[in-house]
């Protein structure tokens, strides 16, 4: 299975709040950033937190966001991201 987003791609972090445990921080929701690295495939934290031993495995991306006078990079699972449009 290939990665949905390529290095350098523009992405938007999901705007809607995710129920339960998630590793998408609220302050990044809805923000547009760019992919600065592909981290490899990891079980989705949201599903692992529900005790699912066969949690979905997804690409994790390092996404850089510009927050005014500084940048923040967060590692985000593919489910947390959408195209920028």
């Amino acid at each position: 299975m290939s990665a949905r987003f390529a290095l350098g791609a523009c992405v938007r972090a999901q705007a809607a709040a995710r129920e339960g445990h998630t590793r998408l921080p609220a302050y990044l929701r809805g923000r547009i950033g760019s992919i600065v690295a592909l981290r490899g495939r990891y079980p989705l934290a949201d599903e692992r937190a529900r005790g699912l031993r066969d949690a979905r495995v997804e690409m994790v991306y390092a996404v850089q966001f510009s927050l005014g006078d500084h940048d923040v990079v967060a590692d985000l699972w593919e489910s947390y991201l959408e195209g920028p449009a």
């Binding site: 990891y42 994790v60 699972w77």
Partner: peptide, 29 residues
Amino acid sequence: SEPRAVLAEFGVELPERTRIRVWDSTSEM
């Protein structure tokens, strides 16, 4: 949200032109 102010509390002053990049440890990295 305000890394420059945080750094100042640690006594760290950076030149204006130095960009701060904050890494939020949200995955297994």
